[in-house]
Amino acid sequence: MDKSITGLAPTADDIEAIARRALAALPEAFRAHLGDIALRVEEFADEEVLDALEIEDPFDLTGLYTGRPVGEKSVTDTAALPDMIHLFRRPLLDEWCETGVTLEALVTHVLVHEVGHHFGLSDADMHALEAAAG
């Protein structure tokens, strides 16, 4: 059913499908290092995460990478939690409505940003790359 006709907001499954398409569209050189990364869509980040990041408004966090960047991994790592990209549905939907950017473009942007963290890039590194590309 077409959600634009029914007026229903995109679900977590809808956002996950967009994110999986975005992952599949990444160049093979990147995808080769993303095989074990988990993707999770949640309504909001939990209070513990928000507190750790010193974020007061849960709508201010659209995505998060948790894990160790590729360059910091070691064969001696044991019992580590899986690397994970979290996408937060409600903040994504709010930003989508506020900016007028397509949901696909927004989810892809956030996902690529979190993939950048998986490869060890800082927010400053990614902003510099975006500025150079734009």
Rank of each mutant, 00 (worst) to 15 (best):
L26P: 10
A124M: 12
G116V: 13
E98V: 08
H113G: 00
G67A: 06
G71W: 09
E47Q: 10
R31T: 12
K73T: 15
L121S: 04
L103H: 04
V75L: 14
H33F: 14
D51H: 07
L129A: 15
L106E: 07
V70L: 15
H33W: 05
R89A: 10
L93F: 12
F88G: 00
E16Y: 00
E47R: 04
G7F: 10
G63R: 02
E48W: 00
D46P: 15
L8Q: 14
D77S: 12
C97S: 14
T108S: 15
I5G: 00
A132P: 05
H86N: 09
V70H: 07
A80C: 13
L129M: 15
L129K: 08
F44A: 04
V101G: 08
E95R: 10
A38D: 13
V112P: 01
D77L: 11
E42V: 01
P58G: 05
L8P: 01
G100T: 04
R68A: 12
T11D: 14
V75I: 08
G35A: 10
R20S: 03
E95D: 12
T11Q: 04
L34N: 06
L103I: 07
E48S: 08
G63F: 12
T66E: 13
P58I: 06
M126E: 10
E47G: 03
E16P: 07
H109F: 12
A132V: 02
V112S: 00
D94N: 02
P10L: 02
L8A: 11
S74R: 09
L111V: 09
T78Y: 13
V112A: 06
I55T: 07
R20G: 00
V49R: 05
P27D: 02
A32N: 04
H118N: 12
A19M: 07
Y65N: 00
R20K: 12
L129Q: 14
V110I: 14
D51M: 03
S74P: 01
T102S: 15
I55Y: 08
I55Q: 06
A22L: 05
S122M: 11
G35W: 00
R89Y: 03
P58Y: 04
L81K: 11
E95H: 11
A29V: 15
R20H: 04
E130I: 11
H117L: 09
T99G: 15
R89E: 06
C97W: 10
V70F: 14
Y65V: 01
E72M: 14
D13P: 13
L8C: 08
